[in-house]
């Protein structure tokens, strides 16, 4: 049997950032939810896992700082990925993550395609929903980080802003956390694991590469672009080893199970908590 040809999609640093985000995000969700649901029996048992609600907030604060560092580091890395000699192409070209008018068109075409009215849009390197996934972190995390740091140092924060902004900070932190958690644990996990073309798991972000047939099917425009640039040969990647594959399947499913567990229990207990 012929070996499937694989094309590089994410470099090692991209993948490390992704795993970093998974680990910190899940920790923040578990410790944050353990405090949010403290009035409920489930919340109390969640706190017990971390050794009580004092330790759980301690972990939440330190991992929060870690997350902020990772975010700053990632932003610096992002700036290095811009080609300053060809700024326009680099920012608005086909390889860019910046949303363009083209993405709005794709969205419309895709809605038509859902109902069988038109063909699938010619998705390029980054589909519009992938761009949304990426940039969602850029409003979610700063909001969580700023309000989180305000709640960490309320006395200092109140020297610069009036005390009542802390009321708003709590509200924004909780609401944004719930938004991020529901988006990731419903939409992102479905896209990554459950939809027919990904099932049982979309391996691109872990293996770093995609089989060329999948690429041709899912990202026809990127495929054409790679072909035109003669990159189908130069951008070839080795398939992931079996051991590595086992590791990331376990990891991916553990994250999925963990997320669904928190989400389902959160929904069940949602009647006992408030957002402010």
């Amino acid at each position: 049997m012929m070996q499937t040809v694989r094309i590089k999609r994410f470099n090692i640093l991209d993948r490390i950032f992704h795993v970093f985000l998974i680990l910190t995000f899940l920790t923040q969700t578990a410790t944050g939810f353990s405090r949010l649901f403290l009035p409920t029996a489930w919340g109390k048992s969640l706190n017990a896992v971390f050794g009580g609600y004092d330790t759980s907030i301690l972990i939440h604060k330190w991992v929060g700082i870690l997350m902020i560092c990772g975010f700053i580091f990632h932003t610096l890395y992002l700036l290095t990925r811009i080609d300053y000699n060809h700024l326009w192409v680099s920012l608005f070209g086909p390889d860019s993550l910046i949303p363009t008018v083209q993405d709005a068109k794709h969205l419309w075409q895709r809605i038509l395609w859902f109902f069988g009215i038109g063909p699938q849009p010619g998705i390029g390197r980054w589909a519009y929903w992938e761009k949304f996934d990426y940039w969602a972190v850029y409003w979610g995390l700063p909001l969580l980080a700023i309000t989180g740091v305000m709640l960490m140092y309320p006395v200092i924060a109140s020297r610069y802003v009036p005390g009542w902004t802390l009321n708003i900070a709590v509200l924004l932190h909780r609401a944004e956390a719930i938004l991020a958690v529901s988006y990731i644990f419903i939409v992102h996990f479905f896209v990554g694991h459950l939809r027919p073309s990904s099932f049982p798991m979309n391996e691109a972000m872990f293996a770093g590469s995609v089989p060329v047939e999948e690429l041709e099917e899912e990202k026809p425009v990127w495929f054409a672009q790679l072909k035109a640039e003669g990159k189908l040969e130069t951008e070839k990647a080795n398939p992931p080893s079996l051991l590595y594959k086992i590791v990331y399947f376990i990891f991916g499913y553990a994250a999925l199970g963990f997320g669904v567990y928190l989400l389902v229990n959160g929904v069940i207990n949602s009647q006992y908590i408030t957002l402010h």
Binding site: W129, F132, A175, I178, L179, S182, Y183, F190, R195, P196
Partner: peptide, 21 residues
């Protein structure tokens, strides 16, 4: 925040389900 939450989910959940179907 409620509008943001409801808006995001109201768009992406049907979008995802329709993709799957």
């Amino acid at each position: 925040m409620m509008a943001l939450l409801a808006g995001t989910l109201a768009f992406f959940i049907p979008h995802t389900i329709l993709t799957g179907v």
